Computed example of a mutant assay.
Amino acid sequence: MSSLAGSGGGLLSKLAKLDAYPKLNEDFSTKTMSGGVITIASSVVMLLLFISEVRIFTALQTTHELVVDTSRGETITINVDVTFPRMPCAWLSLDTMDISGDLHLDVDHDVYKQRLDAKGNPIREAQKHDVHSTKHTAPPVNPNVTCASCYGAEEVAGQCCNTCDEVRAAYRKKGWALTTVDHIEQCKHDEYMDSIKEQVGEGCKIWGRLEVNKVAGNFHFAPGRSYQQGNMHVHDVAPFGDAKMDFSHTINSLSFGTSYPGMRNPLDNVKAKQPQRGDDVTGMFQYFLKVVPTSYTTLTSSKPLSTNQFSVTENFREGQGGPGRMLPGVFFFYDLSPIKVQIVEKKSSFMHFLTSVCAIVGGVFTISGILDAGVYQGERLVKKKMQLGKFS
């Protein structure tokens, strides 16, 4: 029994020799004022570093990765909100085209117009703008109306133009400019012409979304109804005569897809003013956009959000008004990048947080111990020299 106790005591004594933290008797330890100051300072430093590490641990972090975009056959949602303080809603046409020049007549549009007075206040309730309504390739003839004249623009003998739009279409096919419609019987009760005259001096706010193919293209705000004539996309500006067109505008927002946390759109709240250097000066505002496909994956969802970022450069082309001159308006030309950005949310692991906290405590404790030892030895050396009278 005694041998067992002896062997147990020997084992414990050997274990005590492995102690890397030897204890000092309180009789041999000395507390100093400088040590107290260093202790307080090191505690404050440790607390600040700990709070910083907690903030890093609780904050969301994102990683960015560039990959080749392999998606095909998709569409892009364009969310647009633009205000024109000096262009009436009836004068404006919104169109989308892809790189081949074809109009996007078969895609889903959801765009609204809000008439504004000269001070920018809404006049009436917002109305839905049908993009298709501004484009006519072959307007139907009303069989209940007697065959009306095309006013010299007939292609074949006996051709009928029973509506104001049919007269305009006949003139366009001839390449003639229909500068006035006062003498045309079909246009005397045309709602489009009435709205043009009624809304003179007003402004317009247009907002909504456009679904377009995922290819390079453009969408634009321009005056007059737009038509597809052969392979050409044209706008009928004859109803406006010599009226001055000021396309000064404010882009309240513009995005290509759904927004994600931290997303920035460079054209939000951008204002552009047309130079005022003459009554016949007009111009084309051009925005060249580079759209970058982007996917964003949150911590709570395994399915990434597909959206787009974009960069922009802008230009203003000044021109003169009148027939045959440059078409004024606001044009957005966009091109797709072949590189896709993948953004993934992540948080630091608890083990990483624990490792950082231990490093903070150990590092600050070690540095403060070295500093305290240096200050203490310095104080002893000064006191010793003062006792020997060698310190002056």
Rank of each mutant, 00 (worst) to 15 (best):
P275N: 07
V167A: 02
S248H: 06
V80Q: 06
G321R: 09
S311F: 07
P22A: 10
G322M: 06
C358W: 11
V67D: 06
L336I: 15
K31T: 14
R380Y: 04
G101K: 01
D190T: 04
V131K: 00
G9K: 13
V82S: 01
M284A: 10
W176H: 11
H235D: 07
L47T: 13
P304S: 12
F310H: 07
V234R: 11
R124T: 07
E379Y: 13
W91Y: 09
S42I: 07
S306H: 11
N142L: 12
E155L: 13
V107G: 05
K290H: 14
A118H: 06
Y171C: 00
T298H: 03
N231H: 10
M46I: 14
T77Q: 14
V291S: 07
N231L: 08
H235A: 10
K174Q: 08
P266S: 02
H183W: 10
G217P: 04
A170Q: 04
K384Q: 12
Q199K: 02
E379A: 14
I206A: 08
I251V: 11
H352L: 12
S52Q: 10
V107C: 07
L388E: 15
G201P: 10
E26F: 09
N25H: 14
F247N: 02
G324A: 06
G208Y: 05
H235N: 14
F28V: 13
K347H: 05
K385C: 04
E166G: 08
E379H: 15
S392M: 04
V234H: 02
T282K: 00
V234M: 13
G389Y: 01
S392A: 06
L381Y: 13
A20P: 09
V357H: 01
M193F: 15
S52W: 10
V80I: 14
T63C: 00
G201R: 09
L24A: 14
V167L: 06
W176L: 10
G322A: 07
K188G: 07
L94G: 01
F84I: 01
M245N: 07
F219D: 00
Q320E: 13
H233E: 05
F350M: 11
R225D: 06
E65W: 02
F350S: 11
K135F: 12
L11D: 12
P323V: 02
I184S: 03
C187G: 08
R209K: 14
G321F: 01
T300E: 15
G6K: 12
Q61S: 15
A90L: 05
P266G: 01
I196A: 08
F365Y: 15
M232E: 15
L354R: 10
F316L: 15
L60S: 12
G362I: 11
Q387F: 05
E345C: 08
N162W: 04
G262Q: 04
K23L: 13
G319M: 11
R115C: 04
A243Y: 02
K14H: 13
Y151D: 02
Q159E: 11
D102W: 00
K173T: 08
V341L: 12
I367S: 12
Y376A: 06
D279L: 08
K197D: 12
A169Y: 13
Y21L: 13
N218L: 15
I38K: 15
V37S: 13
D130K: 03
C187E: 06
S13I: 11
D279N: 06
D279K: 06
D165G: 09
S255V: 04
S306E: 11
M1K: 09
N142Y: 08
I343W: 00
G152H: 02
G217Q: 05
V167H: 02
L381Q: 14
